[in-house]
Design a protein around this nucleic acid. Sequence first.
DNA 1: AACGAACGCCGTACATTGTACGACGTACGC
DNA 2: GCGTACGTCGTACAATGTACGGCGTTCGTT
Lengths: 274, 274
Amino acid sequence: MTPDAPSRRTPADADAPARTSAGDPARTLALLWRDPSALPRRGPRRALDVDTIVDAAISLADDEGLAGLTMRAVARRAGVPPMSVYTYVPGKAELLDLMLDAAYARMDRRPTTGLPWRERVRAVAEENMALYEAHPWAAAVSTLRPPLGPGQMAKYEHELAAFDDAGLDDVTVDDCLTHLLVVVRACARDSIEAHATREQTAQGDEEWWAAAGPVLERVLDPAAYPRASRIGSAAGEAHGSAHEPAHAYRFALDRVLDGLERLVEGRAGTAADG
Amino acid sequence: MTPDAPSRRTPADADAPARTSAGDPARTLALLWRDPSALPRRGPRRALDVDTIVDAAISLADDEGLAGLTMRAVARRAGVPPMSVYTYVPGKAELLDLMLDAAYARMDRRPTTGLPWRERVRAVAEENMALYEAHPWAAAVSTLRPPLGPGQMAKYEHELAAFDDAGLDDVTVDDCLTHLLVVVRACARDSIEAHATREQTAQGDEEWWAAAGPVLERVLDPAAYPRASRIGSAAGEAHGSAHEPAHAYRFALDRVLDGLERLVEGRAGTAADG
DNA sequence: AACGAACGCCGTACATTGTACGACGTACGC
DNA sequence: GCGTACGTCGTACAATGTACGGCGTTCGTT
């Protein structure tokens, strides 16, 4: 009753978002923790090792994005023929796990002992944003089932510590951290997409609005959408464009911290509060 | 000096997330608003119209997800040969714009006049979550440059009204709405990915943890990660699994509303507050 | 009434993807 | 010394979005 091999990524999955932990869990974990007992005992000496492939993949994804992360390109950067990558890594899914865990492991974790919890939690947010700035592809990978490697564990342990003296119970601390990380990653994704859109379209936001504006004026009746017209243009003028991801992130982070603070204060309202 | 045609999607873009407004803005807007002057004046009568294609695409994406939304499949569902789709829609990017704007237009918008702002804003969140439950693909599409069609405009106008008597200035109202929508969409994405992962892997979270658990115990030293071990398993027991998207959403929504409430109260803290 | 241009329609073709498969050679255990 | 487990990697395949071009239809103009 050996289970079938977990779903492999086929060309048909094109638009499905990249996902971690899509391979055989045991095999992936052995790779993540560099389990020596998983190494081959017979056969010729391996020319490379897993880390060479992972490093090549990370630097490639940093340069070209997830779209440029093809197995052939990884092989090229590692200096081996295309199919040789599969000697070190079972497939692209496992490679993503390894890349992400390695990126987590290398995160810069500032010591924040002594600071109040709000500043420590803010630091956690900034560290994650820094990760996504250094490795934009990391924000695009789904981590619903996180890569349970040493990097992920160190990250989780460190981030939980930020809530140490906030006086919250264990489950709530996990909820708070999850919420914070979801918001930071969402903001990071928007920011990265803004960047990518500018590059790929070779059309800045101003040019896009300049192209869209005249047509929009012809079809759109301001009287039909009074708030949208007024507030939309007010927001557009306040920031450079209609959407300024950096500003959205700052706003979101302050709002999230305020929300967590009410929880710490014990004044959280889950229904209408009186 | 006619500009080059905006970037078309080629097979090489596989892993790049689907994006709205990737086509020629003027052409896309004409399509979105069903500009009659953009219809052809010569040639044979069209066998179908844009809406047939858009409806086929939406029902297809509802059934099969964004990964199943191929131009060939859209054509099959509309009952035309593959390349005929391009008669009605310039390309996949524009089709996504049309799909999204149509989904926005058909959203169920409950009247919430008379309710306090917090309940009205909560209703906006629920309406968006309902949209993503009905059309999971909508959560995956990047809307950095939103499809400026009638559906998007109606949605924006309606959602702004939720903040009508909260006493916030125009720019802040836009910030709040953006923040709310970002969080709801992020939660929706996680929830959808959880669903998709269960289906594609044919492996529930329990089975996955069951497969990962033993190996993890062998490599992981609880003493090295005290908080992670304790809080991780506490959270895992509290919800069914390590990650319960529905719970994460409820928690996030309450926290966001609390954060906005402090803004409304004028007690928001952007730095340490005393 | 007749003609040419503008259009609808759509079959074929191409580059690109992840990776299954299998041939060939190497190193270890008996 | 031999069988087998393994590394290495060339070839092949199905699926993708859409460029291109051939063909037929309809309308504005004459």
